[in-house]
Amino acid sequence: MKCRGKIIVTLRPGVFDPQGVTIKSALHTLGYGETLEVKTGKFFEVILETESLEKAKERLQEMCDQLLANPVIEQYLLEVEEQSR
């Protein structure tokens, strides 16, 4: 079964995000003064072939823990769906 994992990696609370701060000030310059905070992160889409959705989730979680996110500074959100043809 073909599955699609969508992973969003963000910085853990309390970890300074200089890109977010710079983007916020650029938005202020552009006139979006209502912007209070910008947080940056990474998005990954992983397509994989597994026997089940549960198995896909398990494998994707391992990928996140091992490589896609650094647990010292990052956290992740993971969604898995069956890839429609």
Binding site: F16, P18, Q19, T22, I73
Partner: peptide
């Protein structure tokens, strides 16, 4: 961990 410089 080593984060981006605070200065960006």
């Amino acid at each position: 961990a080593l984060l981006p410089n605070i200065t960006g």
